[in-house]
Simulated scan of single mutants.
Amino acid sequence: MADVDDYFASLDASSRDAFARIRALAEELAPAAEQGTSYGMAALRWRGKPLLGFKAAKDHLAVFPFSPAAIDAVRDQLVGYSLSKGTIRFSAEQPLPDDVVRAVVRHRLDEIG
């Protein structure tokens, strides 16, 4: 898997824009985050650990904070979104709220230390 820029370039415009907005929010909080991969997907990495992964599927987009606790921290704010232990699914038409993205990233940054 290529880095985040290469992965985003392979996506359709609406998916790319949705992910780019999330990435920009994450980089506001972690400006030194590096592009890379984790678990076979494009990801931002912080201090050598995965911070936030990105994956587009046929019928949804998903971010992976690599932490069930990070998802649990915002679960009440994501009514109507599809969640699993390590995944938040959404669409370009129903993007993730900015405050939720920031909360997930902050939680993950605190976990990484």
Rank of each mutant, 00 (worst) to 15 (best):
38 S>E: 09
15 S>F: 01
29 L>A: 13
7 Y>F: 13
82 S>W: 00
52 L>K: 04
27 E>I: 01
101 V>S: 00
20 A>K: 12
9 A>E: 13
72 D>V: 03
41 M>P: 09
81 Y>S: 09
69 A>W: 04
30 A>E: 11
1 M>A: 11
12 D>G: 03
56 A>V: 06
21 R>W: 03
66 F>M: 07
22 I>G: 03
63 V>Y: 00
13 A>Y: 07
57 A>S: 12
19 F>S: 06
99 D>Y: 01
99 D>M: 00
87 T>H: 05
84 S>C: 05
38 S>P: 11
22 I>M: 09
5 D>S: 11
6 D>I: 05
44 L>K: 08
106 R>M: 04
113 G>I: 08
11 L>F: 05
86 G>Q: 08
43 A>P: 10
6 D>G: 15
1 M>I: 08
43 A>C: 13
80 G>M: 02
63 V>A: 04
102 R>K: 15
76 D>T: 11
60 H>W: 07
69 A>T: 13
61 L>S: 01
95 P>E: 01
98 D>R: 12
92 A>Y: 01
20 A>M: 00
38 S>G: 13
73 A>S: 15
62 A>N: 12
5 D>I: 00
42 A>V: 05
66 F>E: 11
24 A>I: 06
51 L>N: 05
68 P>I: 07
69 A>I: 04
59 D>I: 00
77 Q>W: 07
65 P>Y: 02
73 A>F: 07
59 D>Y: 04
10 S>F: 08
4 V>D: 03
49 K>P: 08
81 Y>D: 10
1 M>E: 05
76 D>P: 06
68 P>F: 02
25 L>T: 07
83 L>K: 10
3 D>A: 12
68 P>A: 11
64 F>L: 12
82 S>M: 09
23 R>M: 06
63 V>Q: 03
48 G>C: 03
96 L>E: 08
56 A>G: 09
32 A>E: 15
64 F>W: 04
8 F>E: 10
47 R>I: 02
71 I>P: 01
8 F>R: 10
92 A>P: 00
15 S>N: 12
67 S>L: 07
51 L>D: 09
109 L>S: 09
57 A>Y: 14
23 R>Y: 09
43 A>V: 03
51 L>T: 01
70 A>S: 10
73 A>W: 03
110 D>F: 04
91 S>R: 06
79 V>M: 04
37 T>G: 11
41 M>F: 13
102 R>G: 07
56 A>N: 08
96 L>K: 07
46 W>L: 15
99 D>H: 14
17 D>P: 10
77 Q>L: 09
66 F>D: 04
26 A>E: 06
41 M>V: 14
77 Q>F: 04
29 L>W: 05
